[in-house]
Each structure stands twice: as structure tokens, then as C-alpha cells.
Amino acid sequence: MGLEQKLGDMGIVTTSLEKAVNWARSNAIWPMLFGLACCAIEMMSTQASRYDLSRFGMELMRASPRQSDLMIVAGRVSRKMAPVLRNLYDQMPDPKWVIAMGDCASCGGVFNNYAIVQGVDEIVPVDVYVAGCPPRPETLIDGIMKLQEKIRHEPLRKWQ
């Protein structure tokens, strides 16, 4: 008895090229770690065995912007660090996405002074904001899942 007889009629599977490409993109995101403060510890713990970010196709955090398509900004960004952040973002290949992790990256947090950028969206375009001070690893995973959903619905023409 062959495999065909056991399975029966498999039918035809159809999808669009756009959906297939976006599915592949959303399940193979390569994040670049950009940990600046206490949020970085929570970001690193998502890679550990308890939360296992590898389930989402993110085997390890990259240290090079040329190998990454997701920048997770975790922590407060100072005015001196802002040009470095922008330079790393510009070196990332398209398509690229940004997650602002924590209150400091999202809106400056409790640091309302001249030295801290009041939201990383002043420097780079942010796709998903993850709230908390610091946010738990589950919250970052939820933000990543929201980003995956956003990627699945992006038109391919945007990147041409």
C-alpha cells in the first residue's frame, strides 16, 4: 500500500506569491539587539529556555545590522546615542522593522530631561511599541507576534 492510497485525494493548495513571501518573512525575523538599559535584561531572557524565542524563527540576536531585519530598541536612548542608532538602522537591509521596548524607548519614561530622547520614533520609524517598565518577556513576545501579523499583511510593492 503506497503513500498515495493512505492519504487519499490531497487536493490543490493555492495561495498568492505575496502571502507566501510574507509568511516566510514573518517566520524568519532576525533581530538585532540594541539593549541600552534595564529592558535589555528582559529582552535577553526571551532568548532563554523559559520563553524560547526560537519558536518564532529567531534563533539568536544578531550583533551586526547587516544580518538583521528587526531592531529591538530596549531602554533609554540618550542624545549622544541617537546618531549611532540611526546609523545602525540605515545599515540594515530592507525590509526592516523596529520595536520600541519599554517606556523609555517609547516616550522617554521617567527621564523627562534634555539628555534623553523622548521616544525613539524621533530617530527611526517604529512599527510596534511594547509597554512596561521594564516589560516582561511575555510582553515582548506579544509585540513580536503583533509585528509578525503586520508583516503578513504588508504589500510586496512597498519594498520595490
Score class of each variant (00 low, 15 high):
53 L>S: 06
90 D>C: 10
105 A>L: 04
5 Q>L: 13
7 L>Q: 12
86 R>D: 12
12 I>Q: 11
92 M>P: 01
83 P>V: 08
61 M>Y: 15
32 M>H: 05
15 T>A: 13
118 Q>F: 01
104 C>K: 01
136 R>S: 13
89 Y>H: 11
88 L>W: 11
19 K>S: 15
22 N>Q: 15
9 D>I: 05
129 Y>A: 02
54 S>P: 02
60 L>G: 11
62 R>V: 02
89 Y>M: 07
54 S>R: 15
19 K>C: 10
57 G>E: 03
78 S>V: 03
126 V>G: 02
57 G>V: 01
145 M>Y: 09
100 A>M: 09
80 K>N: 12
146 K>P: 02
21 V>M: 15
115 A>Q: 10
128 V>D: 00
80 K>S: 12
75 G>S: 02
18 E>H: 08
43 M>W: 05
22 N>D: 10
120 V>F: 02
65 P>N: 03
77 V>I: 07
38 C>P: 05
111 F>T: 03
67 Q>L: 12
110 V>S: 07
40 A>M: 09
133 C>H: 07
43 M>C: 11
11 G>W: 00
89 Y>K: 04
61 M>T: 08
82 A>H: 03
26 S>V: 06
111 F>V: 04
14 T>A: 13
124 V>Y: 01
102 G>K: 03
109 G>Q: 07
133 C>F: 06
101 M>P: 02
132 G>K: 06
28 A>K: 12
128 V>H: 00
106 S>G: 04
88 L>A: 14
84 V>E: 13
53 L>G: 02
98 V>A: 03
133 C>E: 07
60 L>I: 10
68 S>W: 02
129 Y>M: 06
69 D>N: 15
46 T>H: 05
114 Y>I: 05
98 V>R: 00
33 L>Y: 12
18 E>G: 13
34 F>Y: 13
81 M>F: 13
124 V>F: 00
133 C>I: 07
33 L>K: 14
113 N>Q: 07
83 P>R: 06
87 N>K: 15
116 I>Y: 06
131 A>G: 05
16 S>G: 15
76 R>G: 12
59 E>W: 08
98 V>M: 04
90 D>F: 09
123 I>P: 03
121 D>V: 05
100 A>P: 06
100 A>L: 08
8 G>K: 00
110 V>G: 05
41 I>N: 04
33 L>A: 13
48 A>L: 12
5 Q>N: 14
33 L>F: 09
89 Y>R: 05
96 K>M: 10
68 S>A: 15
126 V>W: 02
124 V>W: 00
67 Q>T: 12
147 L>C: 02
132 G>V: 07
105 A>H: 02
82 A>D: 08
84 V>D: 10
103 D>C: 10
41 I>G: 03
41 I>H: 01
55 R>T: 09
9 D>N: 14
147 L>M: 04
63 A>Y: 14
50 R>K: 15
79 R>M: 10
63 A>T: 13
62 R>K: 14
126 V>I: 08
27 N>Q: 14
49 S>A: 15
124 V>G: 01
42 E>I: 00
128 V>Y: 00
114 Y>Q: 10
90 D>E: 15
37 A>S: 14
20 A>E: 15
44 M>S: 11
60 L>C: 13
115 A>N: 09
112 N>I: 10
76 R>C: 08
